[in-house]
Design a protein around this nucleic acid. Structure first.
Lengths: 157, 157
DNA sequence: AATAATAACTTGCATTTCACAAGTCATTAT
DNA sequence: ATAATGACTTGTGAAATGCAAGTTATTATT
């Protein structure tokens, strides 16, 4: 699995998340509020523990995620996206719009897909804000308009 | 390599191009003017013929590329992106912008990256137009401003 | 204080995928 | 007629993956 970056942006990207699982882990962090080892195992039923362990440490090495022990419970490790990881949001969202167009099963609303196509940076801003607020609250339903804003920040209600 | 689409846009995307080579093949078609089997072999030195063969037929099965025999030379097969494949342009370009920010080696100009971030659809339009015109003319240098417009359509000069 | 439970891994092994080299087959050039 | 080219296909060993089981550290229970 050796990618020569070779001055090519696509090759560089693939070197970081060009395997079967890394993007799913990033997705879980972005949109599903996953932060712990077990969260990822449960989210994509299919990944095995050794591969998950390997991918988490690779993503950390590449600076996509950070890792720290939970203060309250010393057994647990918390993972979260770095800025570099969060900056993959546009890539993820354009994939959303593409899948919405070509996969009938994909659960992304046409409205969201259109906004991604016409005003990506605005949607990114909203998603980013939702990620800040949301602790364990999945962001995707929110973007899809399936939740009202009250769900984002309970403290505000 | 079984991806359950599972209503998730990322999973759907990965099912189509979530391996080490498919995105590079798409890149070659989009930005490097590759159309033949050998073009891809030469472009990403590293892919082996059996894997290339497999990926090309998978991409065809997924409707990303089309395939036809060359009229002039019956030995050759020409591959080209379908609309579904061309619609991956926003995904590729957002990867450009991301790599530009985090990979010092990546050869994408800061100007292009900024335009991708602020006005993606416009850049997509330009790239698409360049792809129409360009037969064997690499599109990336054009987007990067490394070529003058005369290079795009020699007939116009 | 001892025992059990939980979280995050690591290890071993069978299966699958991959890279590399070589060979096949149809078409075109000499 | 012979050679060369383009697009593959077929083996084979190496690497990656999936699965089950085991390990370690920390927390909960008795």
């Amino acid at each position: 699995m050796i990618y020569e970056p070779n001055q090519c942006p696509i090759r560089f990207g693939l070197g970081v998340f060009g395997d079967r699982w890394s993007l799913l882990i990033i997705r879980d962090l972005m949109f599903r509020g996953s932060t712990r080892f077990r969260d990822f195992l449960d989210a994509d039923e299919g990944i095995s523990t050794n591969v998950l362990s390997d991918r988490l440490s690779r993503l950390e090495t590449h600076g996509i995620i950070s890792r720290r022990r939970d203060q309250a419970d010393g057994r647990q490790v918390r993972y979260q996206l770095t800025d570099k990881g969060k900056d993959l949001l546009p890539v993820m969202l354009t994939m959303f719009a593409w899948a919405e167009r070509y996969d009938p099963e994909t659960r992304v609303s046409g409205e969201l897909a259109d906004r991604i196509r016409t005003d990506l940076s605005a949607v990114c801003g909203e998603a980013l804000a939702a990620m800040e607020n949301a602790d364990r609250i999945p962001v995707l339903p929110l973007l899809n308009g399936e939740m009202d804003d009250a769900g984002v920040d309970p403290a505000r209600a």
